[in-house]
């Protein structure tokens, strides 16, 4: 307890913020589906695993990087379309909780299928970005983390532009605001849902590659959903901005707590700390970070 090392604090903070970006990346996949169909898609994590596993297995079998990427992309889009067709469409108009449970079943199916198909061993995934630290203003930052943050920022920019400036994006927003009205003015919901599930598949691919490069591609990759859920509780299930800010908040506070609080309670608190932050925050502000859902539903 001799003096506060602000340099070290800054490093921890930046590291936390950057890992928060990785959480946001997973959370955005949830938001995409929740916004348009009101479903909390628990299978997002297994889709991420499926994407990373498919990609890495193809590369290991000698398929060139870019071809493997395209093939996986196609597989994820087909998977998204298939899910919409076989699981969601028969459950349309069912309570959201029912749909959620269906995605729980879906996540079991995809996890099982991914590992039955590609095996259960751990694969290393090299995206060609070194995980070497560089110094920015005297603070060490992982190059890979920066790269991941850059990708995430690009994804967010693309999604935002998509929602704001394209015809189909505007249709998405109409569906998100009022499914019934959107239906009444002739927007075809099944088509929009199919598109959005395919898009979620693509997001899963990007997140899967980044997380896979970080942790190795294996079963536990699907557990990154558990990191994204508190982010969603904090930021709201329907807000992309919320997913980003929530991810940053949780990433930063989690790392800080791990470093400064962890030693006192025995470490390993990152398994639950994010949930406690999210819950504590909601006790103070029940409407969440941006509080739009209360206004919308009034």
């Amino acid at each position: 307890m001799n003096g506060f090392d602000s340099q070290f604090f800054l490093e921890v903070l930046v590291g936390g913020l950057l890992s928060g970006v990785m959480y946001s990346l997973v959370a955005i996949g949830f938001v995409l589906i929740y916004k348009t169909s009101g479903v909390l898609n628990f299978a997002q994590g297994s889709m991420l695993l499926f994407a990373a596993l498919t990609f890495v297995s193809l590369v290991e079998r000698g398929v060139p990087f870019s071809v493997a990427l395209l093939v996986t992309l196609a597989v994820m889009i087909v998977l998204g379309l298939a899910i919409e067709r076989t699981v969601l469409r028969p459950l349309v108009n069912k309570p959201p909780i029912t749909l959620f449970m269906a995605t729980l079943g879906l996540s079991y199916m995809i996890e099982g299928a991914a590992q039955l198909l590609w095996g259960t061993q751990v694969h290393a995934l090299d995206l060609g970005i070194d995980d070497t630290p560089i110094t920015v203003g005297g603070v060490f930052i992982s190059k890979f983390d920066l790269f991941a943050a850059g990708i995430a920022a690009t994804m967010v920019a693309l999604l935002t532009a998509f929602f704001r400036y394209t015809r189909i994006g505007l249709a998405f927003r109409a569906v998100a605001d009022d499914q019934f009205a959107a239906f009444a003015i002739g927007l075809r919901l099944p088509r929009i849902w199919a598109t959005v599930w395919a898009a979620a598949g693509v997001v899963a691919l990007v997140a899967g590659l980044l997380w896979g490069a970080r942790l190795g591609v294996q079963f536990s990759l699907s557990l990154v959903v558990l990191k994204a859920l508190p982010v969603l509780v904090l930021g709201g299930f329907d807000s992309i901005l919320g997913a980003i800010v929530g991810g940053l908040l949780i990433g930063a506070s989690e790392k800080l707590a791990e470093v400064y609080l962890g030693p006192y309670v025995g470490g390993g608190i990152e398994s639950w700390f994010a949930y406690v932050i999210a819950l504590a925050f909601l006790l103070v502000r029940p409407a969440g970070l941006f509080g739009q859902k209360l206004v919308e539903r009034a």
């Binding site: 269906a102 079943g105 199916m109 996890e111 099982g112 039955l116």
Partner: peptide
């Protein structure tokens, strides 16, 4: 183990539908 997960997941979806 894997086929169990697949069948279990499929059962859940089957019952929900």
């Amino acid at each position: 183990d894997m086929s169990q997960r697949i069948v279990l997941g499929a059962l859940i979806i089957f019952f929900l539908i």
